[in-house]
């Protein structure tokens, strides 16, 4: 009838809990995995910033690896990553999805910082961004030749993320 182990049960439960806490210390509770990963990039047709009569749709990129970079002129982090996006654009076509921006401000922003984008579709009401599961600006998607989303980068890209993740992946997909 003497069940000695039962007295150690609280300790055991606590040890397991501490394990979980330790494992979650270096995790960001707000960093969400993309639901669109390894799924076809949602189709859309949006007018271009430079020329609202013309439009862009992902189908036009079929057969090549490309990046979709979500940006806005009101977004401070976009400014900080812009030069790096320019470098990336030399290796791979980058499409800049301009989210809920004012056309004049967005054009001025590109004129000031340079325009690395192959095209800049304007997502005025944020609907396309929702389809891509975007929840912050900037975000960058890597889309393969078949039009499947292979990677999503949250927040501004960095030298390190480009060299360690983005470029190797892009080269692999391009091969």
């Amino acid at each position: 009838m003497k069940k000695q182990w039962i007295w150690a049960l609280p300790l055991a439960v606590f040890v397991v809990m501490v394990g979980f806490f330790a494992a979650s210390l270096d995790k960001d509770p707000r960093e969400l995995p993309s639901q669109r990963l390894d799924k076809p990039a949602p189709a859309f047709t949006l007018p271009l910033l430079e020329n609202p009569q013309a439009s862009f749709s992902p189908a036009q990129m079929h057969g090549q690896v490309w990046l979709l970079n979500v940006w806005a002129s009101w977004c401070a982090a976009c400014r900080s990553e812009h030069a790096l996006i320019g470098q990336l654009a030399k290796q791979v076509p980058v499409v800049g999805l301009n989210q809920q921006d004012e056309a004049g401000a967005a054009r001025a922003w590109l004129a000031e910082l340079g325009n690395p984008y192959l095209a800049t579709p304007t997502d005025d009401d944020g609907r396309v961004s929702i389809d891509y599961g975007v929840y912050g600006v900037p975000e960058t998607f890597v889309i393969d030749k078949q039009g499947v989303i292979r990677y999503r980068h949250l927040g501004p890209v960095t030298e390190q993320s480009i060299n360690d993740v983005l470029l190797p992946l892009i080269r692999k997909l391009q091969a």
Binding site: Q4, W7, L11, V18
Partner: peptide
């Protein structure tokens, strides 16, 4: 703190 006290409990409470 908690681990030590629960250990003490496991040893002494019976």
């Amino acid at each position: 703190v908690v681990g030590a006290s629960l250990l003490l409990f496991a040893l002494k409470a019976p």
